[in-house]
Nucleic acid binder design. Structure first.
Length: 837
DNA sequence: AGCACGCCGACT
DNA sequence: GTCGGCGTGCTC
């Protein structure tokens, strides 16, 4: 009778220890949260494993364990964690360290970092399902909406919260559901399911007994009268020579190979039913496996070999090396050589590329060399595929990954080398949701933590990186010979003002450009036209009253798109039909002003009626595979001229392109930003590099209203360093990066005055702490209203040395917090962008 | 960021 | 009096 009590206390102490876990939630909350571990999981919880927790009243989230301890929280009782998802950690210690560093450095929440890092397939969704209670007393009166919802639930057996919400209209849902529960009409089930599903292929094989000749012969007899089934069997035997090699039968063939039509499918079904063949499933990787080409010999030129050696030499003393190699100098071969060496030494490699440069061309090329030990991490891939790469990196299946920005978050633990190709590319910086990180810079930190090296490569390095190379922070290798002695293109400036005055310009094409295009076409050569602006016209205006179509949510003009006659805001995505008459004065004289890729395409079709044109910009590549199709058509010579935005500027190497036309160079050059010249040089040089690859010297025609500007001369001469020196002089003088660190705070509010006021208060407080040399603004950005929110920028400039950066950022965060909690500024949001571009 | 709860005005 | 708007503060 007393036996029960002592038994409990006799249990070993360890088993009764109450454990708690501090977890990172993939949401925008500032702290870690503490949950209690159910006793039965005590042995199983691990730092880095994912768990399911209830967060708040109705949310169920996936969290990652950051710490396991025994200290119960003082101020609140900890909730139990609901479920442990991983036996083995999915997030490594290195990653946890990185997340926390990034949250500090980029002034965001660690949860926001986690959210960016984890592919959403690893963040389990909570779906509350509503179910009809069969014991419901239907005499209880219901409101109309309640009735509607209940009927739907009854009909569909079970309804997800979201489905119900869309049926009823989000805002009323909670109360209706609550009331239905109170009336015992429905029951709620919380359903958590894993999103990740491995790809499964259905296979067919012959039953084992038919691997024997006699049995198989007998089978033929049986099927003699059933030609369709026999047919399938013969087909199978053709693919799998069972008699000569019975072992191959084990692996079978893909079911899809045997079933081309319904008839064969049904015959196959009969074969399965009659126990002649069997169906089985295997889990496959989502990528076609390409085995490495045996004895692949990389042929480096002497120059390339020398550069590779130099890089290795530098790595002995520096963690980072900048490779400055002009377009067509064969940087990729050097990367490949180094990657192979690092992989051979047993370390992992990450090769980062900007999204638009991660082309099929590139992937196929690398696949041939590295086979299936190479993983591809691309945003165009589905979640399942991303999860597979993640797991593959963890379990060692992939020692080499080629990927875009977010690949920097993969769970490597032994990175020997990170290659950041086109390191100057702005797409390495994430702009919108936090964390506003730059993968190129994060790569340096990742490598440092794992004692790995970073190779930055570019034909036009960012001035920051070049500066670090010059000041010996990075090693530096220069490659200025084009592969196979190909010549740099000839660059011609066309003065559009002059041409316009002489009435030689047709629409937006100078006579020179149109003539070259015509000739190029006649010679069966291809051309690329670059205009860094999509749509037909950047704005439309009324000739009578000067009315301009503006976005209702943003302080920008609406871009006119000829396709479906639409006006579109490129900031918020708002669209409306283009008006036939001026909304202000009723005039029908509405003109399109300026020009984008769509208009160029339109005009060129008129000027060269027989030309076959392709256009590549955000509008034509939105659909899946559209990008690929446009490129393939161009590659196959089905298009004469490819017109496009930045998308055409990199990663595409075409043999027959010998002419590049650049429109409106001035707009690229005179962008109001301290980096505009650097950018213009990079962009124009990159686009020019598309002209003339091998034997033929290409030609580049730049249309400009100001042919005399020095920057264009720099471009013509390929004088990178000249521009660098000049720009550095200015940046030093006016204290811009790389001579300072910059942090931009953007204050947003729907009311202009409140945004202004809050920004002024914040700037004032920061000024007090940092002094007037370090705080600029508040200032209105060029586009001062986006999505109905007015914007005010405050720029903070901090010296690079002798400053406690962490403490200053902490202080800034506090001040932001302080301002936001003032009653007046409750609705104001402030975003911090560290190292903005 | 969500999301519930509460305090206010508009209408049955 | 109830419904539903929006402001406010919390989430282990």
């Amino acid at each position: 009778m007393m036996t029960d009590l002592p038994q409990v206390s006799l249990l070993p102490d360890e088993n009764r220890t109450t454990l708690f876990v501090d977890v990172i939630l993939p949401v925008s909350v500032p702290n870690l949260y503490t949950y209690r571990v159910p006793l039965e999981l005590n042995e199983l919880v691990k730092v880095g494993a994912r768990i399911i927790v209830q967060f708040g009243k109705s949310r169920v989230l996936t969290a990652v364990i950051a710490k396991i301890h025994q200290t119960p929280p003082e101020k609140y009782p900890a909730k139990y964690l609901l479920e442990l998802l991983d036996e083995h950690p999915m997030v490594t210690g290195h990653q946890l360290e990185l997340f926390s560093w990034m949250a500090d450095y980029y002034m965001c929440c660690i949860g926001e970092v986690l959210n960016a890092a984890l592919p959403s397939g690893m963040k389990i969704s909570s779906e509350s399902h509503l179910q009809y209670n069969p014991d419901f007393d239907s005499s209880i009166p219901l409101s109309d909406t309640e009735h509607l919802l209940l009927e739907t639930i009854k009909k569909k057996q079970s309804l997800s919260y979201e489905e119900a919400a869309s049926l009823v209209g989000q805002k009323h849902l909670y109360k209706i559901v609550k009331s239905l529960i109170a009336k015992q009409a429905i029951i709620i089930i919380e359903e958590v399911k894993e999103k990740y599903k491995p790809k499964i292929v259905k296979k067919i094989r012959l039953l084992e007994i038919y691997e024997q000749r006699d049995n198989l012969q007998a089978l033929f007899q049986i099927l003699d009268k059933k030609p369709k089934q026999l047919n399938i069997l013969l087909k199978y035997l053709q693919l799998v020579p069972v008699l000569s090699n019975p072992v191959v039968n084990k692996e079978g063939v893909d079911k899809s190979l045997l079933t081309q039509d319904d008839a064969s499918a049904s015959s196959l079904k009969t074969l399965i039913k009659n126990k002649i063949v069997e169906e089985f499933e295997i889990i496959v990787s989502r990528f076609e496996e390409g085995s490495p080409v045996e004895n692949y010999q990389l042929k480096l030129t002497d120059t390339q070999r020398q550069a590779a050696d130099e890089i290795l030499q530098w790595f002995k003393t520096k963690d980072t090396v900048l490779l400055h190699g002009i377009t067509g100098s064969g940087k990729t071969e050097i990367y490949i050589e180094l990657i192979k060496q690092v992989l051979d030494s047993g370390s992992q490699v990450l090769y980062l590329l900007p999204e638009i440069a991660l082309t099929t061309q590139m992937v196929n090329r690398l696949r041939k060399i590295f086979g299936d030990s190479m993983g591809i991490y691309h945003s165009k891939f589905s979640d399942n595929e991303r999860v597979e790469i993640w797991k593959g990196v963890l379990n060692g299946q992939y020692s080499f990954v080629i990927g875009v920005r977010s690949a920097i978050f993969l769970p490597f633990d032994n990175l020997g080398l990170i290659v950041v190709d086109e390191e100057h590319e702005t797409s390495y910086k994430q702009h919108d949701p936090a964390p506003r990180y730059n993968a190129r810079d994060v790569a340096l930190m990742v490598a440092k933590k794992q004692y790995g090296k970073v190779l930055l490569g570019s034909a036009t390095p960012s001035f920051e990186s070049y500066y670090h190379a010059r000041t010996s922070k990075y090693g530096f290798v220069k490659l200025d010979k084009r592969f196979g002695e190909a010549q740099l293109p000839e660059i011609v400036l066309v003065d559009t003002r002059m041409e316009r005055r002489m009435k030689k310009i047709k629409n937006n094409f100078s006579t020179v450009l149109i003539e070259e295009l015509r000739q190029n076409m006649e010679n069966r050569q291809q051309s690329i036209l670059f205009q860094n602006r999509r749509g037909y016209a950047p704005y439309i205006a009324c000739e009578e009253c000067n009315w301009i179509a503006q976005c209702q949510n943003c302080a920008v003009s609406m871009t006119y798109h000829l396709h479906n006659h639409e006006l579109r805001c490129h900031y918020c995505g708002h669209t409306e039909k283009s008006p036939a008459v001026c909304p202000a004065c009723g005039s029908t004289k509405i003109l399109t002003m300026g020009y984008g890729t769509e208009k160029i395409e339109d005009e060129l079709q008129l000027l060269l009626p027989h030309s076959r044109l392709g256009r590549m910009d955000l509008d034509t590549t939105r659909k899946k595979n559209a990008y690929q199709q446009i490129i393939e058509a161009f590659e196959a010579g089905q298009t004469d001229v490819l017109i496009g935005t930045q998308m055409v500027s990199k990663g595409l190497d075409f043999e027959r392109v010998s002419l590049v036309g650049i429109f409106d160079a001035d707009r690229i050059i005179n962008f109001p930003d301290f980096r505009s010249h650097e950018r213009a040089f990079q962009l124009i040089t990159q686009v020019s590099g598309r002209a003339g690859r091998r034997d033929k010297r290409g030609k580049v025609i730049i249309q400009t209203a100001n042919a005399g500007q020095p920057l264009l001369q720099n471009v013509i001469d390929g004088n990178y360093t000249g521009l660098y020196e000049k720009e550095m002089h200015d940046r030093k003088k006016y204290n811009y990066p790389p001579f300072c660190r910059m942090i931009r705070l953007t204050v947003k509010h729907v009311q202009h005055t409140l945004a202004e006021k809050a920004a002024a208060v914040l700037a004032g407080r920061l000024l007090e702490k940092l002094g007037m040399n370090r705080v600029l603004g508040p200032e209105s950005p060029v586009v001062n209203r986006i999505r109905n929110q007015y914007l005010k920028d405050i720029i903070i400039k901090l010296e690079k040395d002798n400053i406690n950066l962490k403490a200053v950022k902490e202080m800034i965060r506090n001040e932001m917090q302080e301002v936001c909690t003032q009653k007046e500024f409750r609705q104001v949001t402030i975003v911090a962008d560290v190292d903005p571009l």
